[in-house]
Nucleic acid binder design. Structure first.
Lengths: 351, 351
DNA sequence: TTGTAAGCGTTATCAT
DNA sequence: ATGATAACGCTTACAA
């Protein structure tokens, strides 16, 4: 019982036996150095002699020491956690992005703190407050309703990455989708298949993406010399039920159509069901194109032709960008362009 | 500038102007009481005179003070956060449960900390370590692979709620699904519709739920006097693709069948697609029943008859139970029994 | 009922 | 290169 090693061992044994948490101080004591030294080794804050470094590393391993992020946070340093404002934790679209964020963050020891704003600026603000009070090192906002102004203000306190809009400010990085191009692509696909009477199920116009997608639809029509008809544009709310009702209204209106472009997959699913109920087959009677390429789109009946949005990539890039800002670098990531995924729900117009 | 109120106001103004965080100490100072008094009011730890209580409340409101959970946690008390071990943050089934947890927790000021174990005991253990290092007040484990033993050990440190199994231990509360009954219900439904050749797409047998659902299928068959045929049972992996492949194999095997019961909705969707590809219609040629009642089941084509699992309720109850344990009470919540949801994917066997 | 003071586990700022 | 020592913002004995 004379070597430092066995001393460490006995402390380890004691710690384990008592079930007590091992602290940085205990590690320091175990190898006869000051807490500061241990801290420096942990954080690489300063140069420490190889000798002590080894001793500390060993003690950490033997004691099973895990730094306490809570204390770290209090002491003014990092909390190693990033706040993520999403709209609903169970969103089929953003869920994939959350996974991407989690993957990227956990690789470097960061933990995401997810909070849901439910498409409501007030709730989002509350989310932000929760995150701030928890002292997150940075915040990712997935396409919220918060004003650009609020975001800019927030970015003065800590790094912020926001998706779904383009906005430049110090400490703020934005990752924008090209909704316009995606919608243009989808509409163009239907047009190239010979369709001319293409209904559009729009998203809630309070979402900028909904407006952009409508713009893309109109642009494609115009480019093809097809007249825009307001009666072919149905309001929707981005969920299945609204897609279903939109198609019911459309059919009831007796406005002729041969294809439908829904501003997202969920509404496309609803539209598909409405058509089925009315005895209309997809794609034999009506062609259908969605937007988002949700996980379920590939296995719906029929598999849905849609616009792929790189949600997983979005999450990864958002996290990477935040990490870069935290490291004092300037992020440069750009979202991949939307791609048309041709499956089986749209086909050439039969003469 | 003589009344206490205006003094408070000026401090508030200063705080806002400087953008500095308002601390409990500042609140105390602003109304001339000690920090402990403010703390006591905040936590209801002791009786405080109405007079001071009012003053402090006002100061809190005026200064916009928000307690710092980090410091709270360090100070030995609660962190007001609960760890949630899920399998994948974007799981269509558990996502709904996560939402339930979040709702319930946030109502009382708790924040969930979500970590994903990816159906892997080792990763789950790492998740647990992360949660412990973050000093969560309690942990919810959604149907993981962790051994009962590991859970019991964990429960000695802090309250634990686990779903998907039945296990009794101090500090541990379990919320179990009745998978057996659900599967029995589904199979019985098909049986009562006149089907006798009912294929079963099983889940991965390493999941206890998969085994239970197989048991339920067999029990229903037996009760109806229908002989169990191993060739009608196809292995699956709980995801769409495996359901699709199972049906392809089934059809190729030339084993006659008139109905399919899939051990979860995702496999049912895959099965549906396989049938579609082979020119078999649901429900005209083959009846199909799923399990889980995912969000998409109601809007699939045709809408899927399935067993409703109360995922959202599961989340809420798990959170409530944890909160009760945290409050020193004994939880009593029990999951609702599975229910058959009749939609359009199964119909009477045509003679 | 209220205040004082000692932590909680870490990092940061000085010295040395 | 290393070690005291003071924060960080709050809770909680212990006093009064």
């Amino acid at each position: 019982m004379k070597s430092p090693k066995s001393a460490t061992k006995s402390i380890a044994a004691a710690a384990k036996a008592s079930g007590a948490k091992v602290t940085l101080g205990m590690v320091a004591e175990a190898c006869g150095v000051s807490p500061s030294t241990v801290s420096r080794i942990l954080n690489g804050t300063a140069v420490v002699s190889q000798e002590k470094r080894d001793a500390v590393d060993r003690a950490i391993a033997e004691l099973g020491f895990v730094p306490n992020p809570i204390a770290r946070g209090l002491a003014g340093g990092r909390t190693l956690s990033a706040g993520v404002v999403t709209q609903a934790i169970d969103s089929p679209f953003y869920g994939v992005a959350l996974r991407g964020i989690e993957e990227e963050l956990s690789q470097v020891g960061y933990s995401p703190l997810f909070v849901s704003g439910h498409w409501n600026a007030k709730e989002e603000q509350r989310c932000i407050d929760v995150l701030r009070s928890r002292r997150v090192d940075g915040i990712i906002v997935l396409t919220g309703r918060l004003s650009d102004e609020a975001l800019r203000k927030l970015a003065k306190e800590q790094p912020v990455v926001v998706t779904g809009r383009s906005i430049k400010a110090p400490g703020l990085y934005s990752l924008d989708f090209n909704d316009f191009e995606g919608a243009r692509l989808a509409t163009h696909h239907l047009l190239s298949l010979g369709h001319r009477q293409i209904a559009f199920i729009a998203g809630d116009p309070v979402h900028p993406d909904a407006q952009e997608r409508l713009r893309g639809y109109r642009a494609a029509l115009e480019a093809a010399g097809v007249r825009y008809k307001a009666s072919l544009v149905l309001p929707g709310k981005f969920h299945e039920e609204s897609g279903l009702m939109a198609v019911e209204r459309l059919i009831d209106s007796r406005e002729p159509f041969t294809a439908i472009f829904a501003a997202n997959d969920q509404m496309a699913f609803g539209a598909s069901l409405a058509l089925y109920r009315r005895g209309l087959r997809v794609p034999e009677d009506v062609s259908l194109v969605g937007f988002d390429d949700l996980a379920g789109a590939a296995h719906s009946v029929p598999p849905l032709t849609t616009i792929h949005q790189a949600a997983h990539e979005l999450g990864r890039l958002a996290a990477q960008s935040l990490l870069q800002m935290l490291a004092g670098q300037k992020p440069t990531a750009v979202l991949p362009e939307p791609r048309l995924i041709v499956r089986s729900s749209a086909r050439p117009l039969q003469p």
